[in-house]
C-alpha cells in the first residue's frame, strides 16, 4: 500500500508539474463549457425537448459531445503511464525494484483517475450558476457524476493496459483510443440489431444509454458491476503484461 501511495504521489506530481496537464484541463473546460452553452441555448429556446431533463442532465450523456472528450482525454491521460518509463529508460529499474506489479499498476491508475476527477470537478460550478435560475436536483446530479466517474474508471484502466502494451506514447494513445472507442461503438450495436437477445446484449454495453440513466438520477447495479469489472480485468491484464515483459527482458 505504501508503495502504491508513493507511486501515486510521484505520478500525480508528474502530471501536475507539466504544462500539459493544464493544457488538457483548459481544453477540456472550454469543450464542456461550449457544450453546456449549446445545450442551454437549445433549452432556453425550446424547453419541451428536455422532458424530465434539465441542462445539467443533458450535459451528461445527452449528446456525443459528452463522450468525445472522454474518449480522447482518457487515452491522453494514460498514454505516458508505462510508455514514458520505457522511453526514458526507467522501466527496467522500476521492474527490477522490490515492488509488486499490482502496486505499480494501481499507483499509476489512481493517479490518472485523480486527474480525470480534477478535469470534471470545475463543471460543478455550472450547477452552482444554474441554481440562480431554478432548482437543481442534486441527487440526479450526484448520479451523473458517479456515472461519469465509473465510465472514466473503466476507460482509464483500458488506457493503462494499452500503455503497458505499447512501446511509445503515440502507440499507447492510439491503442487506448481503439479500445475505448471500440467499447463505445460496440454499445451502439443496440441500434443496429433487432432481435431481443442482441438488443439486450448491446444495451448492456451501451454507454450512451447508461449515462442517460445516470443523468436522470437512476443508478443501476448492472452498470456499476460492468464498469468496475472492466477496470478490474484491465488492471489484472496490465499486471500480466508487465510480468510478460519482465520475462522477455
Amino acid at each position: 500500500m505504501r508503495v502504491t501511495w508513493a507511486i501515486y504521489k510521484r505520478e500525480l506530481a508528474a502530471h501536475f508539474y507539466t504544462p500539459l496537464a493544464y493544457v488538457i484541463l483548459v481544453v477540456f473546460l472550454l469543450w464542456n463549457g461550449g457544450t453546456f452553452l449549446l445545450l442551454l441555448q437549445q433549452f432556453a429556446a425550446n424547453p419541451e425537448i428536455s422532458g424530465t431533463r434539465g441542462p445539467m442532465q443533458l450535459l451528461f450523456g445527452g449528446s456525443i459531445l459528452y463522450f468525445l472528450p472522454i474518449l480522447l482525454f482518457c487515452p491522453a491521460l494514460t498514454m505516458r503511464a508505462f510508455a514514458e518509463e520505457r522511453r526514458s529508460g526507467t522501466f527496467e529499474s522500476l521492474m527490477t525494484a522490490p515492488v509488486r506489479d499490482i502496486e505499480v499498476v494501481l499507483g499509476k491508475y489512481f493517479s490518472a483517475l485523480t486527474v480525470y476527477v480534477v478535469l470534471w470537478a470545475p463543471t460543478i460550478l455550472y450547477a452552482m450558476v444554474l441554481r440562480k435560475f431554478g432548482p437543481i436536483d442534486w441527487g440526479a446530479l450526484g448520479a451523473s457524476y458517479f456515472g461519469t466517474f465509473l465510465l472514466g474508471a473503466a476507460l482509464i484502466s483500458l488506457g493503462v493496459l494499452a500503455s503497458a502494451m505499447a512501446r511509445s506514447q503515440v502507440t499507447a494513445f492510439v491503442l487506448a483510443f481503439a479500445l475505448t472507442s471500440g467499447l463505445f461503438l460496440a454499445g451502439l450495436g443496440k441500434y443496429v440489431f433487432e432481435s431481443e437477445a442482441q438488443q439486450a446484449f448491446f444495451s448492456y454495453l451501451n454507454q450512451w444509454e447508461h449515462m442517460e440513466e445516470f443523468a436522470v438520477g437512476v443508478v443501476d447495479s448492472r452498470r456499476v458491476f460492468f464498469y468496475v469489472s472492466i477496470a478490474a480485468v484491465a488492471l489484472f491484464q496490465t499486471t500480466r503484461v508487465l510480468q510478460l515483459r519482465k520475462g522477455v527482458q
Binding site: L37, Y126, P135
Partner: peptide
Amino acid sequence: NSSALLISQESIKLIRWYA
C-alpha cells in the same frame, strides 16, 4: 421536472462569460 429552469438569452450571456 424538478430541474426545470427559466433561462433568458440575457442570462445565457452571463453564463457564457462564466463557462
